[in-house]
């Protein structure tokens, strides 16, 4: 069975993929459909959905187009989710690989370090980091990466520990390959599938984290994001429910889609496990 056929067997994953493609399309089309800045006042404020043609989702407290904000926000959410996950992988994969491959004291030290980061409450740490570094896309990405790399390190470490004494690794060692080559060329490629699955789930968590940070007013003041839209509309929820409702649905759908895709990837990449689960 092909990879995609295995993926598509999980109906939820297929639905997730379709939603995800739609959201990516939103992000790509945003500058074409709404070339104006989503921060610009374009109509009178507090316009309910469908009240005026061309403003299907209404306007916010400052007369900004909610639909435009939603589309531009998609781009920011996906970007921050992807980049922060990549940074978390860049931190976590080498640490986990070294700990798992060498074991012993190195492993002990690196794992204590990882545990330290796992003990600290994630979201509180992210808040403190962004507040100190001042809110910007860079500081948000860094903060999310710093709080989300430990699971990666633990996963990669466990994989390396189970693979480091396999026959093909012994063989590589016998033909004189160095440690770096064995880690990068022999073991790492074999740990990729669980990493990919974890990464897709991490993008979802990162998007949730980013929205929560922006909701608290720690978003980049120059980019429109879903969390900011909800945070800004919080105090007027009695007058204008749509201002918080639509961005929240957007976050919910995106995170849900990524989780579904992650499960589908898990099934497709680990067919044996998937069969056992059924």
């Amino acid at each position: 069975m092909s990879f995609f056929a295995r993926f598509a067997q999980n109906r939820g994953a297929l639905i997730g993929l379709i939603i995800l493609i739609a959201i990516i399309a939103m992000a790509i089309l945003a500058p074409f459909l709404f070339p104006e800045s989503p921060w610009r006042m374009v109509q009178r404020p507090f316009l309910a959905p469908f009240e005026v043609d061309g403003f299907a989702l209404g306007t916010d407290t400052m007369g900004r187009n909610v639909a435009a904000g939603l589309m531009h926000g998609a781009w920011v959410s996906l970007l921050i989710g992807l980049v922060s996950t990549s940074v978390a992988l860049i931190i976590g994969v080498p640490l986990g690989a070294i700990a798992g491959y060498y074991g012993g004291l190195v492993d002990d030290a690196l794992m204590r370090f990882t545990e330290f980061f796992q003990t600290i409450p994630n979201f509180a740490l992210a808040i403190v980091l962004v507040a100190i570094m001042q809110p910007s896309v860079t500081s948000i990405v860094l903060a999310i990466a710093i709080v989300s790399w430990p699971p990666v390190a633990r996963l990669v470490r466990a994989e390396f520990m189970s693979l480091r004494n396999r026959e093909y690794v012994e063989a590589a060692r016998l033909v004189g390959q160095g440690n770096a080559t064995i880690i990068l060329k022999q073991i790492l490629p074999n740990t990729l599938s669980p990493i990919i699955v974890l990464a897709s789930l991490m993008v979802a968590t990162a998007i949730l984290l980013e929205s929560a940070l922006s909701f608290l007013g720690l978003g980049d003041p120059n980019v429109m994001s879903w969390g900011y839209m909800i945070g800004a509309a919080r105090t007027v929820i009695r007058q204008a429910w749509w201002l918080s409702f639509f961005p929240g649905m957007a976050i919910l759908l995106t995170v849900l889609a990524l989780n579904l895709v992650g499960e589908g990837l898990d099934d497709a990449l680990n067919p044996k496990l998937a069969r056992e689960r059924q």
Partner: peptide
């Protein structure tokens, strides 16, 4: 399980706001 997945994916602050909207407002 589907419901659990939806709750898992829902932003907490948003559920809180929606709960205010429904049960208080």
């Amino acid at each position: 399980m589907a419901l659990a997945l939806v709750f898992y994916a829902t932003p907490l602050f948003w559920v809180a706001l929606m709960a205010v909207l429904l049960f208080s407002v």
